[in-house]
Design a protein around this nucleic acid. Structure first.
Lengths: 156, 156
DNA sequence: TAATTATCTTACGTAAACGTAAGATAAGGA
DNA sequence: TCCTTATCTTACGTTTACGTAAGATAATTA
């Protein structure tokens, strides 16, 4: 027995977001609740599920526009014409972008880990690879691979 | 033989970014080139490496503030006191956040893939799981696991 | 040297994704 | 019914990460 009359305040606290955010997505055409005769918004379980995925996507950096495009996929995909083809193509692009981003995040993650080793494990030695200090530093040879350290080291 | 006198226009086209962006990072204290006596900015290879990593991080959604914090790690990590400890803790938080984000992206990626199967492979049938249509649809049983489809389906 | 072309500073403009305040109704409890 | 709390619309404010224009100076090319 699905509850179909969540009010906006309930929804907001349920999903740990703000009332303004929910209304904003409505302004943007992403979430259209039904209304009571007096105008109060009512949300069904499906609205909540939909809002949940919208929140997940925005949290990952998807723009409203990008989310709107994904939401429009079904509509277009049923036509079987040119726009349907374009939608397929678009979805593949989204997937490629996500793949790239995952790889970049993994790469950054490795670099941060290595940088952490260097900074904290090198016994206070934070010399740059080109420096003459700490020639026997055990993590010394790692340094060249850590592009992130270019951010950490001062410019001379 | 490292070139140490790149001018801002060269740097911008080299890294496919804008002059304004480079100057903005300088305003924010992230990249401080040397100057000629007349005031023209000059960038070394190290400046370029540093800018490269800054651009990678911003592209991934890191804020200037977050990048600044990472850049301050060395300074603080050498003190060996409380703030050094906090920096270590901060780095771990960053890593955890990145890990979470990777997992979320992978999850979304799987969902998009599945949704693509459903939408394009179901021979034009885009009914919701609760619908009576297409009872023999081979991808039907996948549907419940695809939270993303809540975004694609209309609210009834 | 003259004429482009690039860079400088200053400063206002912009888009996205909401925050926040005001004044008016609506809904729910005592 | 009265009072308090929630929701409504309208609309201006805010932050981040730059874009863009103006007027002046510097560097490069003919």
């Amino acid at each position: 027995m699905a509850k179909n009359n969540y009010k906006i305040g309930e929804v907001a606290s349920l999903l740990a977001t703000s009332i303004r955010t929910i209304r904003y997505y409505e302004e943007e055409g992403l979430l259209t609740p039904i209304r009571t005769q007096r105008g109060t918004r009512l949300y069904s379980e499906h609205h909540i599920a939909r809002l949940t995925i919208i929140l997940r996507l925005t949290k990952l950096g998807f723009s409203i526009e990008a989310i709107r495009k994904i939401a429009e996929i079904r509509e277009k995909s049923q036509t079987g014409d040119e726009s349907s083809f374009q939608m397929e193509h678009h979805l593949k692009e989204v997937l490629d972008t996500i793949g790239d981003q995952i790889r970049e995040l993994e790469s950054i993650s490795v670099e941060i880990n290595d940088a952490r080793d260097v900074i904290s494990g090198c016994n206070g030695c934070s010399n740059r690879p080109s420096s003459k200090g700490c020639p026997d530093c055990p993590v010394r040879k790692k340094l060249d691979n850590i592009e992130l350290l270019n951010l950490v080291w001062d410019t001379e």
